[in-house]
Design a protein around this nucleic acid. Sequence first.
DNA 1: AGGCAATTCATACAAACGTTTGAATGAACA
DNA 2: TGTTCATTCAAACGTTTGTATGAATTGCCT
Lengths: 214, 214
Amino acid sequence: MAAPGVGSRPPSPGEATRDALLDTAAVLFSERGFDGTSVRAITEAAGANLAAVTYHFGSKEGLYEAVLRELLRPMRSVIAQAIRMRGTPLSRIGRVVRSMVVHMGQNPGNPRLMLQQLTGSPLPHPAVQSLMKSNLQRLQALIEEGQADGSIRPGDSLLMAVSLLSQPAHMSIVLRPVQSIMDVDEDESQFLARMADHAAEFAVRALEAPGGAP
Amino acid sequence: MAAPGVGSRPPSPGEATRDALLDTAAVLFSERGFDGTSVRAITEAAGANLAAVTYHFGSKEGLYEAVLRELLRPMRSVIAQAIRMRGTPLSRIGRVVRSMVVHMGQNPGNPRLMLQQLTGSPLPHPAVQSLMKSNLQRLQALIEEGQADGSIRPGDSLLMAVSLLSQPAHMSIVLRPVQSIMDVDEDESQFLARMADHAAEFAVRALEAPGGAP
DNA sequence: AGGCAATTCATACAAACGTTTGAATGAACA
DNA sequence: TGTTCATTCAAACGTTTGTATGAATTGCCT
């Protein structure tokens, strides 16, 4: 691995600690929140000097923004790719939901940071806003396509899109707690796969026009 | 108002500042999180002395636990009451979802604190765990009742219950951001009512057996 | 009126916080 | 070999943090 291809040029000196800080901070911020994570905790866990954060990112907030952008980027492509597949609008919606559950379940830092943003301030960080907007709009378009051909029942496409997004976000967050609280005796990755299938079917059933296609 | 009825005995001295601390802390903790809220910010906003928190609650953590318990209690009864109503399992599920969206939308501190717990530590506070467990179990029972009489489609009742709960929690959190980001030109309480109706219908459609009752 | 227990208050404390500083270190280039 | 520039480092800065302390104040009972 580590073939000198796209995006994997050999790390120049200094870029190594920069990346270590990013990776470590992503874990700590998503687990303990911004205020619950000290610069000292980050630099010690990353094996870097205390002053490294200020040097590479200007401030703790600068590091947080960099982490946010880094962690949010994959989400865009996951959704975009699932939407781009061929099939009926409903089947594509099912695939979007399933792949979001899987991706968020495997990268829990992502929904954690997003929900921290949503529960922490009146309005989330611009990067989160932009991601929400683009995802909602794509889903809305897909829903309206299905409504136009009669395969999706009538209704407010924005609210439907919000409902669709609420499932992956919430599911990936409660996965572990539910498993523990309800004594689910199952491998975690298997439980995640089952959850993804369930969420996809739940979404499709909720949207499909009664009686199926016209 | 303030008729000397149940639970409203005249506040004994000292209980007044205790209550003020609880109310103020509920707002601040839910808006800024535990680490983002200082004891000084709480006591100043409550018009109390800095030492009042230690005196009345032992510590900042003690106050936080008291707030959590106080804020979570209404949720139990909201669900319990909606479940207790008469009607088919599906119609009762619809009512549970609708009243949860409304209640959480009107008391945003509640889902905020719960989600902060879920995004902040591997396992949420015992009080949150207990609430999740009881709510999931009640919903599971209701779902299985509907599956037994054929009005609800087959499927894992636990995952279905999780999907049901995910809607109110997420909706009440994203209500304002979505309204702002998607330029929804509507009164907030009206938008909330529409969201509650939508969530209830979304849930019912997702669960109902194809072809209606047998 | 006097004494008592509960509560409030101003102040102090050590610890932890984010950031700054100026010297030490290293590799790259001439 | 000598110079330069980016990076790392240990130490210190002033603030803010949660909690502790002991003296003032309050309302109540005899």
